[in-house]
């Protein structure tokens, strides 16, 4: 099927914002990542993996500001981006376990997941790749006269990549409906970002005349509010928007990282600002839900992920020849 045909197949299950919906989606991501960590340690998830734990408010807050038909691209830390867009946790877990039933049939793995039906252009394992893809998706939306926006998630380390400088300028001069979401979790892999970055990241976007906003990335409501503005700006044809979320990851950069570079006490301090706890406290304070209802919600999400894991472990692997034969017969170069 061509890209032209694919674009009409859009049925993204987008995040609702009312009630406990945002908390539930963040819980889903946290429990999913916990499970991925366990499965990695058991040797069921292969290669490497980068967890989104601690950063859930970013993807969930941003994706809640999107409409069906909008698209987003994630990074190698992309499970949260995928789940926030509505990608089926079963298809994603099956993919991570290399199963035939995975959303990409086990071809992609953790860092390269694509699910266009849910608006996921892809997760891009090379830093900055999401920015490039989204620049092009936004170009297609604009040139085809479609009022959709395309969102690129990327880390703060991406601000030192050629993609960042080239694509932000490209998008701004063409006034593309793109939203660039810089998830600033303070560390470029193992290195504090300030040690390798001159000046201010947001100022780089401002220098191009790009609309910018910085929000508390540990607060899903703050992210959602900022993202709604950013998306509205882009959708109105005013050009790209740049949203920085100040966030933190509770786990290492990747599987092999104990996080020894963290500043003393920093992890404990940020865990007290856990976006799940922040949102839970807000819901109770506002009387939207009580403790027992939220405990019940947490239990429900945990059971759902348990089921996902059980099914994924039972799912078939792709057959060694059929999997690649299908590709070769598909008309690929």
């Amino acid at each position: 099927m061509s890209g032209t045909d694919r674009i009409v197949a859009e049925a993204a299950e987008l995040v609702r914002t009312e009630g406990t919906a945002l908390l539930e989606r963040m819980l889903l991501i946290r429990r999913f990542e916990d499970a991925v960590q366990r499965l990695f340690q058991r040797g069921e998830v292969h290669g490497t993996t980068h967890l989104y734990s601690g950063q859930e408010a970013g993807a969930v807050g941003v994706c809640a500001a999107l409409r069906p038909g909008d698209r987003a691209a994630g990074t190698y830390r992309g499970h949260g981006h995928a789940l926030a867009l509505g990608v089926d946790p079963q298809g994603l877990m099956d993919e991570l376990l290399g199963r035939d039933t995975g959303v990409c049939g086990g071809r992609a793995g953790s860092m390269n997941v694509v699910d266009l039906e849910h608006g996921l252009v892809g997760c891009f394992g090379i830093v900055g790749g999401s920015i490039a893809a989204v620049t092009g998706v936004a170009l297609a939306f604009q040139r085809r006269g479609i009022e959709h926006v395309a969102v690129a998630f990327f880390g703060e380390g991406t601000s030192n990549q050629a993609y960042f400088a080239e694509c932000l300028n490209f998008a701004q001069v063409l006034r593309l409906p793109a939203v660039f979401v810089c998830e600033n979790n303070r560390y470029m892999e193992f290195t504090p970002i300030e040690e390798v970055t001159a000046g201010d990241i947001v100022a780089r976007a401002e220098a191009l005349g790009v609309w910018t906003r910085t929000v508390d990335g540990m607060d899903v409501q703050a992210v959602h509010a900022g993202a709604s503005e950013a998306v509205a700006h882009a959708r109105a044809g005013e050009g790209p928007a740049f949203l920085q979320t100040l966030t933190y990851r509770f786990v290492g950069h990747s599987r092999s990282d104990p996080g020894a570079y963290r500043k003393p006490g920093e992890l404990d301090e940020m865990r007290r600002r856990d976006p799940l706890a922040v949102e839970r406290a807000r819901l109770i304070e506002a009387g939207t839900a009580d403790e027992s209802e939220l405990d019940e919600l947490e239990g429900r999400v945990a059971r759902r992920i348990d089921e996902v894991v059980e099914r994924a472990l039972a799912a078939p692997f792709p057959s060694a020849d059929a999997g690649m034969r299908e590709y070769k017969e598909s008309g690929a170069a």
Binding site: V121, T135, V137
Partner: peptide
């Protein structure tokens, strides 16, 4: 090249 890639998977 990146813009061309993204556009190519989005109907252009």
């Amino acid at each position: 090249a990146g813009a061309a890639f993204g556009a190519a998977i989005s109907g252009l």
